[in-house]
């Protein structure tokens, strides 16, 4: 389960407007098995998000099989093969809030707004990625089999 505050807020949002598909992330074991949007993500869009240093930011820290991006990071493991090491549910929790798996992780929580300090005004109260973007990234990572 995510922090109660986030869950409550998400539920409050979801209750009146059933149209806006925003599903509170439900942690089961070491993953979040269900899509955050109720829909599968798009792997091609996910690749673009991962490659983009201003949106996904992943290649600041990670390297990955994205040859056109020459500048990649080495603070963390390569994303290559992530889809064979982890299930979609495990990947989803890793992106949503990796601190759930490793409290000391330096990887930002991409879908959490609580527990942060001194967030810049233009980002305050916003998650790094939207639910749909998280799903796109998960779909892309799942394709990285080797």
């Amino acid at each position: 389960m995510l922090r109660p505050g986030l869950l409550a807020a998400a539920l409050a949002l979801a209750a009146p407007a059933a149209v806006a598909q925003q599903i509170a992330p439900q942690i089961v074991g070491d993953g979040i098995p269900a899509s955050l949007t109720g829909q599968p993500g798009d792997a091609a869009r996910g690749r673009a998000i991962v490659a983009n240093r201003g949106i996904g930011l992943c290649l600041l820290c990670h390297s990955g099989p994205i040859a056109e991006e020459r500048f990649q990071g080495d603070l963390s493991p390569s994303l290559a093969g992530a889809g064979s090491r982890w299930s979609e549910g495990q990947l989803r929790l890793r992106i949503v809030d990796g601190a759930r798996l490793n409290a000391d992780t330096i990887m930002p929580a991409y879908y959490r707004t609580s527990g942060l300090q001194r967030v810049a005004r233009n980002f305050d109260g916003k998650t790094i990625l939207s639910a749909a973007q998280v799903e796109d990234v998960v779909a892309y990572l799942a394709t990285l089999k080797d």
Binding site: L57, P108, G115, L116, Q117, V119, A120, F123, K126, I128
Partner: peptide, 12 residues
Amino acid sequence: VRQGQLNLSCAI
């Protein structure tokens, strides 16, 4: 101290 949306510290 960790800070910002990316939740990182100078020391990290």
